[in-house]
Design a protein around this nucleic acid. Structure first.
Lengths: 231, 231
DNA sequence: GCAAAAGTGTTTGGATTACACCCATGC
DNA sequence: GCATGGGTGTAATCCAAACACTTTTGC
């Protein structure tokens, strides 16, 4: 049936790579770690790890995210799978990429055997990464941008309380466009937001109002079919 | 570093599953094969195969498509990867799903060791499939529908020459909605189509005009940034 | 008062919707 | 001629873009 022995197929490994995106200073950034082991020693890389033989894939992604950031209960959508035969120098390793969207403010580096040095790097200014990680990261960024347009995931990146201008800046950065302030506000007027009395602090201009995403209201309205997020 | 021996990771296999969609009689259908071997003997399944140790993933998907349909040079976008530890009774096998959109008219079953019986089945009327193939197929169908909205992939499913009503039926079926004929035509008026002099044959009402998708024009206009497909 | 950014209103043209109507073909 | 779908026009409405304007804060 097969031209090689059936058992020869069971000689591959797979890994999970976890692309972690954040937003600060008007830029979307990815969390990179510096490798302290061969291969690609001293290269920056996307956090990832081999998957245990009995471990589920999303579970492995959660493990990596938790070990690195201490964060739990974050959605980890799948990006793509990368499996060129020669992508890993130590054997056939295919990797399934996941991505997480987190608030940089919530993030705190945890000690980890494979994460001595950790850094947020703007997606528009990436260094040369280990393995095929440049390709994995940029492919995943495209998938994330797709999601940004049709699901309210921008609020996973923005602080819990944000200004409308911060929100606008996120979209301007992602899609590399400039938007009109007045029109932006009209565009988002149907998104369920909670307006707080609280204002921005320590700015040398009129302080902006702070908003939160009204998740409960959003889910109700989506469920009833009366609303569909769209940017 | 790891709590198990490094070589123990290299004991998995992976497969590629290829979901093939087509459109006929106003319905979107998937190509299923009947398994003649264990496990899941006599169950219908999505065509798939183990990936050779030196084979690239898209190449494996192309191979499966070609063996089954004789078709080549078809885009095979990736869907998702499915890897629950117990999804395959014979060991840890994760599977990468791809999907192909083909014209049923171009399709011709080829003999194949693993495809004795082949059938097009409406995605709204699927039987119980082998393995986790119901889940794989429905997840892939959702991804395909996403693509249908923002890329001109409907023309990969429609005959080379199609009527506007056939096109409308495709969208009505996919999104489970009814559309106004006049408004549908206004909506698509920016899509570059070639109008042929040829008319529909053998219908017992006024024959409809036939159209083709103007791929060349489309790519030019997308490249210059003046056009973005949207349904 | 001035700089800087927050925040709002008006106009315009293009797209979406609902709906009505005419046209070509087979039988 | 009539049933069946093909094909088009109109009016009301909604939405997006462009742009101008007012407001509030720090210094």
């Amino acid at each position: 049936m097969y031209s090689i022995d059936f058992s020869a197929f069971f000689s591959s490994a797979f890994s999970v790579d976890c692309i972690i995106f954040g937003f600060s200073d008007g830029e979307i950034k990815a969390l990179l770690i510096k490798r302290s082991v061969k291969p690609f020693e001293n290269y920056w890389a996307v956090p990832g790890d081999l998957v245990y033989p009995n471990e589920d894939l999303p579970q492995a992604a959660e493990r990596i995210l938790f070990e690195l950031t201490g964060l739990k209960n974050i959605q980890l959508p799948q990006s793509q799978t990368f499996g060129k035969p020669n992508r890993h120098p130590q054997g056939r390793v295919i990797t399934i990429a996941f991505f997480a969207l987190i608030r940089i403010e919530d993030f705190e580096v945890k000690a980890s055997s494979w994460a001595e040095e950790v850094n947020w790097v703007s997606v528009k200014n990436l260094p040369e990464l280990a393995f095929d990680h440049n390709f994995i990261l940029s492919s995943t960024y495209e998938i994330f941008k797709q999601k940004l347009q049709y699901e309210p995931v921008c609020f996973d990146l923005l602080p819990e309380r944000f200004t409308l201008n911060e929100m606008q800046q996120l979209f301007e950065f992602a899609f590399n466009i400039e938007m009109d302030k007045a029109n932006f506000r009209k565009k988002i007027k149907n998104i369920p937001l909670i307006a707080h009395d609280e204002k921005q602090q320590n700015v040398k201009h009129r302080p902006a109002k702070l908003f939160s995403f009204d998740k409960v209201n959003y889910h109700e309205r989506v469920k009833s079919g009366e609303y569909q997020f769209k940017m």
